[in-house]
Every structure is written in structure tokens, then in C-alpha cells.
């Protein structure tokens, strides 16, 4: 059963648009799947390799801007941004890794946080190149209907899930976990930690960039405030993984469902404004106290709690 779970879920998701969901429902599903991709990507670097990034918006934004600038400057379809983003995000990740990966633990986290902001400010000011705060808009989106967008992001998600699973179960995955557990010990056992951390960062960046390039195509409009956002991208990415379960295959999936639905719910509360971020903060505190391994990681704990409740 467990072995077939990914196939069953993919199959069900593939059939879902056929039952005629409303546009709004489709939009929510697309967002959930997109966040799953970003969460899985972050999890590879933060969960398995132990390098907690506070700046994944950098990769998301670079992916989105690859598609956007390509469209705006050359007139080619922004869809080419998806394959092209792999190249540009890899190069950017290499540079970002070169600067930040010499830092460890909280210093790495702060370094990446700064990188995210550096990207945002740069994109705002390179007006000739990025249109600055005006942003980039697609004159017309490829489809009005959401079905195809849904299948494309589902395809990206399946690709990401399979790739990450392969990586984690390979030699590479062991190296990542060894680096997370004890970097010095890993180095003294013959693991080139700088190299493998860089690989983890590039892979994580590329998957996040794919989601970014998709976002450009799907939303049809980006600006630096949106795609390089600290709290709306970088922090939500961490929340998705923390809520779902760090270093688990299904954690980002569960986390994405909860975070997207929660964001929608909170948004519908009147006169809340940016205070919705407070709610996320409170949720994160509760998760860290009661379910430090996330919903998937601490699933047995949750089950025990409810069983106990029924018996009592």
C-alpha cells in the first residue's frame, strides 16, 4: 500500500479536473501543488542537508524573472523560461553558495536572508533590465481555463518528487544527512562537504526556480515585491516544511495543503490586514512546541492524542 501511495495520489490528482471544479478551487489546487514543489526543494537543502535557508525567494524570483525577462526582451513565450530557469538558477545558486556556504548554522540562515533581500533590491533598481517596481506583465496568458496550468504544475511536482526521492535514497542522500548531523565528522571521513553542500543548494534552487518560472506563466504578472518577498515566499517556504515535517517525503505536501488553505481562510477574515502574519507566527510557535517534527514526522503522536481523547 505504502509503495503505491505516490501513484494513487498522482492518479487521483490527475483525474481531479475532470469532475468540473470551480475556477477558484482549481486556483487553490494549483497553489497547493506549487507550494509543495517549493517545500520539497527547501526540504532537500534544509531538511536533509541541514542548511536552513531564509532566502528561498531568491531562487523563486530568479526563476520567475528568467521567464519574465525572456518574454519581455525577446518576445519568446515565457514557457521557455521553465527549461531556461534551470540554467540561470544553477549559475545563481553557484554564486550564492560560494558566498553563503562558508557560513554555518544560524549564520548561513542570516546570510541567505540577506541574499533574498539583495535580490529584491537589485531587481527593483535594475530598471532597464527588470522594469523595476513596475513589474513584468504578460500581454495575454496562454489559457483562460486553468486545467492546463494544473497539469503542468502537477507534472513539475511529480518530477520534483521522483527526483528528490531518488537523490535522497542515493549515496548523495547519505552524504547530505551526514553533513547535517556533523559537518566536521563528515569532512574527516572523506566527504568534500563544500562540494556536496553546493550540490544540495543548486538542486534545491533549481526546483524552486521551476516553481518560480511556472508562477510567471500562471499569474501573468510579477514584480520584485511579489517574487522576492521575504515573508510571503521565504518564510512561508519554511512554514510549509516545518508544519508538514522536516526531512520527510510527504511533509511538504501536507504542509502546502495546510498553509495555502490557512492563508485563504485568514485572508477572508475582515479587517485583519497584515496581521495574518501574526497568525502564522503563532502557528509556528505551537508546531515547534507540540509537534517539533511536523505533522508527518509526529503523526504517531497525533494519533495517540486522538485515541486517548476517545478512550477518556
Amino acid at each position: 500500500m505504502k509503495k503505491w501511495l505516490p501513484y494513487i495520489i498522482t492518479g487521483l490528482l490527475a483525474l481531479l479536473p475532470l469532475i468540473g471544479l470551480s475556477t477558484y478551487m482549481m486556483h487553490i489546487l494549483i497553489l497547493v501543488i506549487m507550494w509543495t514543489v517549493i517545500g520539497m526543494a527547501w526540504n532537500l537543502l534544509g531538511g536533509y542537508c541541514g542548511q536552513v535557508s531564509f532566502g528561498h525567494a531568491a531562487f523563486f524570483g530568479i526563476g520567475a524573472y528568467t521567464a519574465g525577462i525572456l518574454y519581455f526582451k525577446t518576445g519568446l513565450s515565457a514557457w521557455w523560461g521553465i527549461p531556461l530557469s534551470i540554467f540561470f538558477v544553477s549559475v545563481a545558486s553557484l554564486l550564492i553558495g560560494y558566498v553563503t556556504l562558508r557560513l554555518r548554522g544560524p549564520f548561513f540562515a542570516l546570510g541567505t536572508l540577506a541574499i533574498g533581500e539583495v535580490c529584491r533590491v537589485t531587481a527593483e533598481n535594475l530598471r532597464d533590465f527588470t522594469q523595476g517596481t513596475l513589474g513584468i506583465m504578460l500581454k495575454e496568458r496562454t489559457w483562460i481555463d486553468k486545467t492546463w496550468y494544473y497539469y503542468i504544475i502537477l507534472g513539475i511536482a511529480v518530477f520534483t518528487f521522483i527526483s528528490i526521492r531518488k537523490i535522497i535514497n542515493s549515496k548523495l542522500g547519505y552524504y547530505f544527512v551526514a553533513i547535517r548531523e556533523d559537518q566536521d565528522a563528515a569532512e574527516s571521513l572523506g566527504i568534500n562537504t563544500t562540494l556536496y553542500k553546493t550540490i544540495a543548494l543548486i538542486l534545491s534552487g533549481v526546483f524552486t526556480g521551476l516553481a518560480g518560472a511556472f508562477y510567471m506563466n500562471y499569474m501573468g504578472y510579477i514584480d520584485p515585491e511579489i517574487v522576492f518577498a521575504l515573508h510571503d515566499i521565504s518564510i512561508i517556504t519554511i512554514m510549509v516544511v516545518m508544519v508538514g515535517g522536516v526531512a520527510t517525503f510527504w511533509g511538504p505536501v501536507v504542509g502546502a495543503v495546510i498553509m495555502v488553505l490557512l492563508a485563504e481562510m485568514i485572508r477572508s477574515i475582515p479587517r485583519l490586514g497584515v496581521a495574518h502574519q501574526t497568525m502564522f507566527g503563532i502557528l509556528l510557535i505551537l508546531i515547534i512546541i507540540f509537534l517539533p517534527n511536523g505533522i508527518v514526522g509526529d503523526f504517531s503522536k497525533i494519533r495517540k492524542f486522538f485515541r486517548f481523547g476517545r478512550a477518556g
Binding site: 544527512v177 556533523d182 566536521d184 565528522a185 572523506g190 566527504i191 568534500n192
Partner: peptide
């Protein structure tokens, strides 16, 4: 020589406090 290559030369270090990979 890079630290991660030393082990190939035949130097092993059993560090203080064991430094095992506790989740393996």
C-alpha cells in the same frame, strides 16, 4: 591537502565526544 582527502592517505580521526551520525 584538503581535509576530506586525508582519510585516503591513511589518517583516521576518532573525535572527542564521538561525533556519530545519531540519526543513522
Amino acid at each position: 591537502i584538503k581535509p576530506y582527502r586525508l582519510i585516503e592517505m591513511g589518517i583516521a580521526h576518532v573525535p572527542e565526544g564521538r561525533r556519530l551520525f545519531v540519526e543513522m
